[in-house]
Design a protein around this nucleic acid. Structure first.
Lengths: 349, 349
DNA sequence: CTGTTAGCGCCTTCAC
DNA sequence: GTGAAGGCGCTAACAG
């Protein structure tokens, strides 16, 4: 009863009466041996159940694994259910796949936790939406290619959009028709977790810790241009970009006395905007007549529905593609700024 | 100019004047050395920039990588944008993550292509929605744990739902109110790719190649029970579960003369049903008054909108959890059948 | 508790 | 074109 050990390259060499180097060449360097011999080796290999060189040993020997890791800001559970993150991943996957690389997913959740040991098997890292002060960042292997997305890491290539400019665009569009009571719904704006109205008791995170600050700056710029004092616009905040978390916050907002209820919602994500839209529909609030709503991201769900969401599109798939190409060295490792596009829909004509 | 080689365990051992085994123990077996020594080693390690044992070498030595691969039926690009697949993945990720494992994503697209070499680094494989006749299946490393999801592989543990039963449930619900002109929208039902009406010229795939056969069987059973001849119900088919592909097919269906237009659509996915709903809304067709629609899956997008989709929920996240637990050996490696749940919504009361 | 040693499976010079 | 040998970085026996 020999334990059914996996066949190795050496076993196969002995079996065929050739040297191990020849087998290795048959798999890795076709030009180093006769086509006939190569053919024989390959067919015998598959007949005997040898599935090719072991990835663990090969990567130890060569130093490369053909695996690229994507570190996600949140838990994998959250990220995989978020349309923006999913699109980003699909862009990454598309490029990696086309070049015979595979994708390892790492959660960025535990701020103090270190990445799992298996992480350092990757040839390179794409870090998505993690803020630079995150502990995790320090723990990633030194001296291996790293591309950051949506935020800057000193000395690292980055791909991102101009959040302030994009927010300015959408807000400018929305403000063409002057609102009575605009409101802004932020995403993770405050130091203290806050699902609801932002008050004087809250401290805002610095712009190195949240993308919302840059977006807010764009909104404020547009408000001022339209003669509205930003400080007078109520801020609301949401901690997690999911229907479940958004829903009660927006319900609270909608359930204010009618004379306080906003007639324009500038939302920092399409998810927030879509949740607002659903809740408004349920309450019989007419969109856009009684309430205008804008989003941010341009996810499919907002565009393939009626009424269509007015928003500003960022090319998440494109971001993923660019990041992957940078990691693979197909694109220069520099700052890449992707453009955004205003999508005028039905919710804020 | 010494090239800045990554520091190894051996280097660190020399640096600290202890043996390599001690360093290894400091990282892997705290009980094998004094806490003080361990503390010193760990702090010196991080000071000198040693990030812990190299995953490639470790996995070669131990034979385990703590990486689990998920093989997806479609391209990663598609799968990551599909709500059902994403939810499944998030279930898998949740469990793996909780046990210090990481997730490697493999595309199942190329039917004749082999998995990338880096695939065999995984400790186990979860194969999602790939049909058993797929070539790829043969190429996966032998003798490593494999769990299949949504289809059966001889001799492999599986997690799935009862598609026929679930379809029977939803169709029975829909048929309580007798339709004049029901229609069924399938997903990858035919041998010949078909986006449109299924005709006599088409051959249906066998039930070993598509889940649609099992679902169709459930629909037919319910139809017969309600005195409707299944053969008289028009079949339509869609090749890819995306808005872009569904949309023109449903447009064709809606644009038939009014007296031919269906008043009940039994759809094989929520994506199809939601696309139908959007298109109906755009055409001013009232749902459910003029047209009733049912889906399949129970994705969030269909439940967090108005009108709410009538559908049957399968617990995709749960599937992922169970599959991951089976791979990790926390659940017996057997056939697992998950239950489904009728979700009566507004689109087919 | 600590050190020595022998590979894990492969790739790659180098000599033939 | 082919074969022999060293070592990638680590861990698990075992010996002290």
């Amino acid at each position: 009863m020999t334990p059914p050990r996996r066949m190795t390259l050496k076993d196969l060499a002995r079996e065929l009466g050739v040297s191990t180097a020849t087998i290795s060449n048959a798999f890795n360097r076709p030009d180093q041996l006769s086509p006939t011999l190569r053919e024989r080796i390959l067919s015998e290999a598959s007949r005997l159940g040898y599935g090719g060189p072991d990835a663990k040993a090969r990567s130890l020997r060569t130093g490369r694994s053909r695996i690229v890791a994507v570190v996600l800001a949140e838990s994998l559970t959250y990220s995989l259910n978020d349309a923006v993150a999913s699109e980003f991943l699909s862009g990454v996957a598309e490029v990696l796949d086309a070049h015979g690389h595979t994708l390892l997913l790492l959660p960025g959740r535990g701020h103090d936790s270190q990445p799992p040991g298996s992480a350092n098997i990757a040839d390179g890292f794409i870090v998505y939406g993690l803020m630079p002060n995150n502990q995790l960042l320090q723990r990633l292997p030194f001296q291996r290619p790293l591309v950051s997305v949506d935020f800057d890491v000193e000395g690292c290539p980055t791909v991102h959009i101009d959040d302030t400019e994009a927010s300015y665009q959408i807000a400018s569009h929305a403000l063409k028709q002057r609102p009575e009571r605009p409101a802004i719904i932020n995403l993770r704006l405050t130091v203290e977790p806050c699902n609801g109205r932002v008050t004087a008791a809250h401290t805002m995170l610095p712009s190195t810790s949240t993308i919302s600050r840059a977006r807010l700056a764009g909104f404020y710029e547009a408000l001022e241009e339209h003669g509205i004092t930003p400080g007078a616009v109520p801020l609301w905040n949401i901690e997690e970009n999911t229907f479940e978390v958004c829903s009660p916050v927006l319900a609270e907002l909608f359930d204010q006395p009618a004379h306080l209820r906003p007639d324009l919602l500038l939302c920092m994500s399409d998810r927030i905007a879509l949740t607002a839209l659903t809740l408004a529909e349920q309450r019989g609030i007419r969109v856009p007549e009684d309430l205008r709503i804008t989003g941010f991201d341009g996810i499919a769900e907002g565009q393939y529905r009626a009424p269509r969401l007015t928003t500003v599109r960022q090319d998440s798939v494109g971001k993923g593609r660019v990041a992957a190409q940078m990691i693979l060295g197909h694109l220069p490792a520099e700052q890449q700024l992707l453009k955004t596009e205003l999508l005028p829909g039905d919710t804020c004509p």
